[in-house]
Each structure stands twice: as C-alpha cells, then as structure tokens.
Amino acid sequence: MPLPSSALGVMEASAYAPEVLARGLPSSLRPQQQSEDRGEPTGSVAGVASPLLSLQGIGLSFGGVVALADVDLSVHPGEIRAIIGPNGAGKSSLINVISGVYQPDRGQVLLDGISYAHVPTQRLAHLGVARTFQNLALFKGLSVLDNVASGLAYKVRSNFAGQVLGIGRSRGEQRDTLSRADQILEFLDLSAVRDRLVGTLPYGLQKRVELARALVAEPRLLLLDEPMAGMTASEKSEMAGFVRAALDRFATTVVLIEHDVGVVMGLSDRIAVLDYGRKIADATPDEVRNDQRVIDAYLGVASDNEDGAGI
C-alpha cells in the first residue's frame, strides 16, 4: 500500500522530547513571544473556517484533584491538532470530556456549532466523531473483521429478527458493512489477520485495529488517545504514516494526544500543551518547541538547590 513519502519521513528528523526541545535554545531567545502564544494562533492552516470543535472554559476535577482548569481549545476542519503534556497533565481527561465519557464541571463543548454541557456519548458516532483509547478498548471476543465492522453498528437499521432470518434490509446492510470493513483492513494493511481473534494479536497490531474501527465510520473528527503509546520506534513511524494516509484519504480532522513529542512535532499543524490541567501553550510546532514554559514543563525547572547541599 503506498503511503505519502512525507509521512514516512516524519520520524527521521525528530527525536524524543528533551533533545528536540533543548536543541539550539540560546537563553536570549527563550522569553520569545510568550504572551502571544497563549492566545488563538493566527497563522494556522484553517484559520478562516469556523472551528469543527471548540472547548470553552472546561473545568473538571475528581474530588480535590483538578484534572482540567479553564481549558479552551479550538480545532479547525482538516487539521491535525495535537495535545501534549507530561503524565497526568489532563490530556486523556480532555479527550474523555470531548467524547462524553466525563462530564465537565464547568464549560462547554461546541461540536459543529452546537453547544453541549455533556457530550452525548451515545450519539457521538452520529455526530461524526470517533475515537481510540489509550489503553486498548477492543472487543477481545470478536475477530479483527468483526471489531472493525462494529464501528459501523451505529448505522444499522435492520432489527434482530431481520438479521436472524436474513430478510429485509439486513442482507444488504451486512454485505455493505463487511465490504467497508474489508476496505479499511486493506487500507491499514490488516487483511492478513482479518479472521484472527483480536486478543491474540501483538500490541502494535491491536492499536492499528483500533484505528481501523474508528476510521471505518469515516468520521469527520477523529480523537486519537496516544495511538503510539508503548510502540517501538519503527512501529511509531508506521503508525504515523497510517494516520497521515488516513487523513489524506478521508479528509478527517484529528485531535491527537501523544506522549512522544517527536512524533507530534512532525505530524501536527498546531499543538496545545497541558500541564497540571492548564493549557500553557497553544501554537505551531516551531513555536511550541521554543516556548520556555513548555520546556520547563517537560524538562523540569532547575531547582535552587542544584548541588543537593543540605540533603
């Protein structure tokens, strides 16, 4: 399957977070444009179009722990929007708010201009939103094909009796579902494991099956929660290639959460950085790379007591 060469090249230039961020940062440049970075970026790819998704003042806490505090975010059609941050920064909480798994305490989510205090999870697929999960959320008892086909379950209109007896619209639906699932499997190079039980696949392939399940519905907005977590470097570049290819093919808008800053820098159009539930930066990859607050969040701030005196 041909992939855009740019997608495969993504990984080569980038590396892990500290190196990327620390590279070439003379101290004179550090305070650069900090205040501007935090507002709405101006030079983004789709600045003119109205946002497909926008979060306004989202606040979420679990007991006394603040997971998200007053987070704003806008995602424009056609862009890859990355959300990065250290562990526990609230990235997954944000995705869970967007997909309605969590109900935010404050703020609202605007999908396609319609505002929700609590996104209706059950209607998410109908709204054209699909997601993957940080920890795999596949259906272990189903084959790869059936897992992917289940991504189209929201469209099924035939009832169980029709399906059991094979009458009415169920036949056409079944044929249509399986052929679309097969197309996606081929697209993501999964045809060879089509009939395997998904739980028996290696981790990297399971991640890809999850992407396939999300893509089969051809969503307008795709939420990827650490799609490359736990992968080897070559698996990561492969996955990045698939995400790019999917974008080219389905013109999907992507919200990408990723731990690996290197992957993110190469893939995304704009990056929001979270730290302790707050958005500390929101800009293009180059600007984020040079943002002092981001560097501090990732590398830590040098302590005053660097020598460890007195310990």
Partner: peptide
C-alpha cells in the same frame, strides 16, 4: 467486552 467503547462507537 467493553461497554464504554461500545457506547462510544454508537
């Protein structure tokens, strides 16, 4: 196998 995922995919 996964009620949350099932709900999210519709």
């Amino acid at each position: 196998d996964n009620e949350t995922a099932a709900r999210i995919i519709g």
